[in-house]
Design a binder for these strands. Sequence first.
DNA 1: ACCATTTACGTAAGCACTTACGTAATATAT
DNA 2: ATATATTACGTAAGTGCTTACGTAAATGGT
Lengths: 315, 315
Amino acid sequence: MDIIKELGEIALGSRLKRLSDRFMQDVSKIYKSQKISFEPRWFALTNYLYNYGGSSILDLASSIGFSHPAVVQFVNQMEKEKLVEEFDDGNDRRKRMVRLTEKGKSLFESLQPLLKEIEDSVKEIIQATGYDLLHVIESVENALDEKDIYNRTLKRTKQRHMDAVEILRYSPVLKEQFKRLNYEWLKKYFKVEKEDEKILSDPEKEIIDKGGEVFFARLENEIVGTCAAIKINDDTYELAKMAVTEKAQGRQIGKKLALAVIGFAYSKKASKVTLETNRRLQAAVNLYESLGFKSVPMDKESKYERTTFKMKLEL
Amino acid sequence: MDIIKELGEIALGSRLKRLSDRFMQDVSKIYKSQKISFEPRWFALTNYLYNYGGSSILDLASSIGFSHPAVVQFVNQMEKEKLVEEFDDGNDRRKRMVRLTEKGKSLFESLQPLLKEIEDSVKEIIQATGYDLLHVIESVENALDEKDIYNRTLKRTKQRHMDAVEILRYSPVLKEQFKRLNYEWLKKYFKVEKEDEKILSDPEKEIIDKGGEVFFARLENEIVGTCAAIKINDDTYELAKMAVTEKAQGRQIGKKLALAVIGFAYSKKASKVTLETNRRLQAAVNLYESLGFKSVPMDKESKYERTTFKMKLEL
DNA sequence: ACCATTTACGTAAGCACTTACGTAATATAT
DNA sequence: ATATATTACGTAAGTGCTTACGTAAATGGT
């Protein structure tokens, strides 16, 4: 029973590694059986030097796709075998220019028939599968170039996290949570101002009764975030008092709360949502921008010291 | 410019490695971004323990395809995190049985949604290529199982070596080579006997004039092997005095020389070829067997001390 | 029952790289 | 012109395995 095979897509990396090892080990075995004093890992380097002539260490590294310490190692080893030699760049004394010696060139040339045979063997294998393997690989590489596994997965994970968050409307039992969550982040980044104390101590009077709403985010039976929609006038609501607890951050909770506020404003037939924030809160500003908020000039002094600018969203 | 891609089939191993690394690194990055205290390399082990329960170190190693020291490492690391625990086998005190702890189980379970998302991302990639990648890989694996790159290449290389060897018939200028090559190997494995001296010193009188022939193998303008067809009677020729110089061994020269002798006997309308050899010369005996020679009882004492048995080929 | 062989596991060393970091030479900005 | 940044390279240390080897426990043949 082949576990890696059984696991399917989830172990694709391991399966490809196993396949790659099989190819590379076989090639190594071929060299050994032919008693050729040439290490397979030198191949890319030698091939490059043979076709493109002398190069510096870093040029070689980036050309053949190894780190430069690896190239230093290869060059040192091959120098011992007198397959490569150094020469001066002439301009830049930091550079260690490397080229093949005559011995190196002729060894590489003598390798050609064997390489051709390896190539033919690989082609034979590929032909036997009936697929154009190189083209398949290229397609996979292209798909990954377009968007890698990391980003594809992250997108799905974010969606899951958003789905897991429940948004609740205000109820008296949640009053203390509103205060706790806001105090938590205010103390961390700024300080609790007079206006904060007023609103956070009595949201019913300060927000709800004036036609606004307070939303809460619940994740696995815990209240992890909150946000208020404060009515400015029939046409405008302010998004304010957003706070998400530390350990739940990065789970799209802010986004969901903001969307709740926007939805609330929309249901009240308002035409815009405003907010005040601070440049320091980069993550928050990014979120607002992703939702369509634009910076607007400060029309009048804010009630809060921490405010550095305003944003607006047209509905 | 992508050198690995340019190289095509010859760098297929490296290309697959690069692709595999890309998958595996992305997965590792995903775990890290989710701040999960779980190493991707533990996955196979954990998955096995979760599905199949407690196992010993060696069982785990063979099941998940790592070496046992690797499993020891994983288990020690996971034990530190209290993800696995040990228990006694009861019968065998050498065994260190391992199973997941409750913490390990629940961590693995909590990982499932993420794994599903990774799997879906991989599936998405594969779908985008339009190929059934897993099936393509399986086809390649099957082709390799049938005959690996090493053996496919070796077959081609042997053919090339055979093609590169020229077989020459006796001419007086080659007389010394016949002696030199035979002395070389006689001294290495046995000793030069009276009968050897007689034949090697005057092949014209001892072989050619009696209706036999001496063949030589020339490789890149160097005589690297020799072999004689000694006429026993009209019906029988003896394959004898085969010698291939050390550094040219493994290049199918013996085979080609033997075929020359067999061909010579055939052209003389003989019905069998015999030879005398020694069990110690395993490579030579294998060659003779591959050509169809069978062991036969010694009908009479050999002229050579080194002979331990005879072989015969019916034409 | 006894000794040789095999098995299970741990440890050490090796491998083929990588990342991290330090130093000297060169390029760039003021 | 001089300070600062950047680049080229070497070295050290780390990584994620492997192979090689040693020891203790179990097994098997006589």
